[in-house]
């Protein structure tokens, strides 16, 4: 078991390294003139500089190093917790992140909890109902949740709940009330996916032979759904939660922009606008780290929940 854990952790770290490397390659090696890009991001016009000043700038940004050298240098800094300096603001990227990360984590945490609860609850109810017309309508609903752009939903919710009804603020980070609309908006696409997958899973499990055995015992539908169906149908959701982290991060960028919230997502949007390369690299690295960590936890948790994996079959 210990070897399994160690190998999974190593795998996770390698994936993270891979993601970091790809991002580095795109940001530092793809641009035709990295120097002028960086100078523009810092607010300096490259044309106004003399050759000596350009050389000095090149050295300052570390662009006179070899490719691999630069990469290792940045990686070394990263491992020490130094994400570099923001080109546009001049402040330490680590500080920028540290200020904003808690806000985004709170938003994402709420959204994930909401989406799992709503998704599972929705699927459970839709399967439990017996009245056909309502059942059919509910089954179609998640597809709608998946089709609407998340930023559009945000605008719609602002229009209804903020401007028309005045229940919640439409922007800012003040207090719990400001968290409600953004969290709900962010949770909708994931909730829709969980609901869809779970409904299908419920259907599959209801058709299994062991459910007939349960019925023959005299159990009611509600008892069967709670004791037998839920546990077996919900297992795939765990893996799905891990995979949805990517969508949650992307969604956070859009939602924080729509609701004008302080957070890593809006930091990303601003940095891309200003072509602030170190910040973009840092944000993507954090996102990949979150993805890899969550999926690692899911992988390690799975054997605990599915007895078929944990215990090898002992047949006498």
């Amino acid at each position: 078991m210990k070897t399994y854990i160690i190998s999974r952790i190593t795998q996770a770290l390698l994936v993270l390294l891979g993601a970091y490397t790809i991002t580095y390659v795109i940001l530092y090696l793809l641009p035709s003139d990295a120097l002028s890009l960086m100078l523009t991001a810092s607010g300096v016009d490259a044309d106004t500089l003399s050759a000596a000043q350009l050389a000095e700038a090149r050295h300052h940004y570390g662009l006179d190093r070899g490719v691999v050298d630069q990469y290792l240098h940045l990686l070394g800094n990263l491992l020490r917790g130094d994400f570099g300096t923001s080109l546009s603001t001049g402040s330490s990227v680590t500080t920028l992140l540290a200020d904003r990360l808690p806000q985004t984590l709170m938003l994402a945490g709420c959204a994930i909890t909401l989406s799992v609860t709503a998704g599972v609850g929705f699927a459970y109810t839709a399967t439990w109902l017996r009245w056909r017309p309502l059942r059919l309508a509910l089954r179609r609903l998640p597809a709608l949740g998946l089709s609407v752009p998340v930023f559009w939903t945000g605008l719609l919710l602002i229009q209804i709940f903020s401007f028309t009804l005045g229940w919640f603020p439409s922007m800012g980070n003040k207090g719990f009330a400001s968290l409600v609309l953004p969290a709900v908006t962010l949770s909708i696409p994931s909730a829709a996916i969980y609901a869809q997958v779970l409904m299908r899973s419920f259907d599959d499990v209801w058709g299994e032979s062991y459910i007939a055995t349960a019925r023959a015992k005299g159990l009611s539908r509600a008892q069967i759904q709670w004791r037998h169906v839920l546990r077996n149908a919900a297992l795939p959701i765990l893996t799905l939660i891990g995979l949805q982290i990517g969508n949650t991060v992307s969604g956070a960028v859009l939602v924080e922009t729509v609701f004008t919230r302080v957070g890593v997502g809006r930091l990303a949007q601003e940095s891309v606008l200003r072509q602030d390369i170190p910040v973009v690299l840092a944000v993507v690295t954090i996102s990949a780290a979150a993805f890899v960590t969550i999926n690692l936890i899911v992988d390690l948790l799975y054997p605990l929940l599915d007895p078929r994996i944990a215990r090898a079959a002992k047949v006498t």
Binding site: L14, G18, A19, V253, V280, S287
Partner: peptide, 23 residues
């Protein structure tokens, strides 16, 4: 599959943002 794992860690929107930053 390891390659796919790496790609999964970079969702579409983020990757697009990275590319837009660069070029």
């Amino acid at each position: 599959m390891r390659l796919i794992d790496v790609m999964l860690a970079l969702p579409s929107l983020l990757l697009a943002l990275v590319i837009v930053t660069a070029i």
